[in-house]
Amino acid sequence: MIYVLVGGPRDGQHVDDLPRGYRLDLDEPAPQRFGEFDTVRAVWFELDATMFRSRQHRD
């Protein structure tokens, strides 16, 4: 599975691991083909990244 990142610092990148700060786009009905791979959109949630950073500083 390939993730297409939408928004945030890595907008437009195709990656094979979902990076922190991104979530799957639940509005997208089905994976799309990219060569021989299925792709799904992952959208940037800045709030999630902010929460992760603050949690990381407390630990």
Score class of each variant (00 low, 15 high):
1 M>Q: 13
1 M>A: 15
1 M>E: 15
2 I>F: 09
2 I>M: 10
2 I>C: 06
3 Y>Q: 06
3 Y>F: 11
3 Y>G: 05
5 L>R: 07
5 L>C: 13
6 V>R: 00
6 V>M: 00
6 V>F: 00
7 G>K: 06
7 G>E: 04
7 G>T: 15
8 G>W: 02
8 G>P: 00
9 P>F: 14
9 P>H: 14
10 R>F: 13
10 R>S: 12
10 R>P: 01
11 D>E: 00
11 D>M: 01
11 D>H: 02
12 G>T: 04
12 G>H: 08
12 G>D: 08
13 Q>E: 13
13 Q>I: 06
13 Q>F: 10
14 H>F: 14
15 V>K: 05
15 V>N: 13
16 D>L: 06
18 L>Y: 06
18 L>F: 05
19 P>C: 15
19 P>S: 14
19 P>Y: 15
19 P>H: 15
20 R>H: 14
20 R>P: 07
21 G>R: 08
21 G>P: 10
21 G>V: 09
22 Y>N: 01
22 Y>V: 02
23 R>Y: 14
24 L>D: 13
24 L>I: 12
24 L>M: 07
25 D>T: 06
27 D>I: 02
28 E>F: 12
28 E>C: 14
28 E>D: 14
28 E>H: 10
28 E>Q: 15
29 P>I: 13
30 A>S: 15
30 A>P: 03
30 A>L: 13
31 P>L: 12
31 P>W: 08
31 P>C: 15
31 P>M: 15
32 Q>P: 00
32 Q>N: 08
33 R>M: 04
36 E>R: 04
36 E>H: 07
36 E>M: 10
37 F>Q: 08
38 D>G: 12
38 D>V: 02
38 D>I: 01
38 D>S: 12
38 D>W: 01
39 T>E: 05
39 T>L: 02
39 T>A: 09
40 V>W: 02
40 V>M: 11
41 R>F: 08
41 R>D: 07
41 R>M: 05
41 R>G: 06
42 A>C: 07
42 A>S: 08
43 V>R: 04
43 V>G: 12
43 V>N: 04
43 V>L: 08
44 W>Y: 13
44 W>M: 09
45 F>E: 03
45 F>L: 03
46 E>D: 09
46 E>A: 08
46 E>Q: 07
46 E>I: 14
47 L>W: 04
48 D>E: 04
48 D>N: 06
49 A>V: 03
49 A>H: 01
50 T>F: 00
50 T>S: 02
50 T>E: 09
50 T>D: 09
51 M>I: 13
51 M>K: 03
52 F>D: 08
52 F>V: 02
52 F>I: 02
53 R>M: 09
53 R>Q: 09
53 R>H: 09
53 R>E: 14
54 S>N: 03
54 S>D: 09
54 S>F: 01
55 R>W: 11
56 Q>D: 09
57 H>S: 11
57 H>R: 03
59 D>H: 05
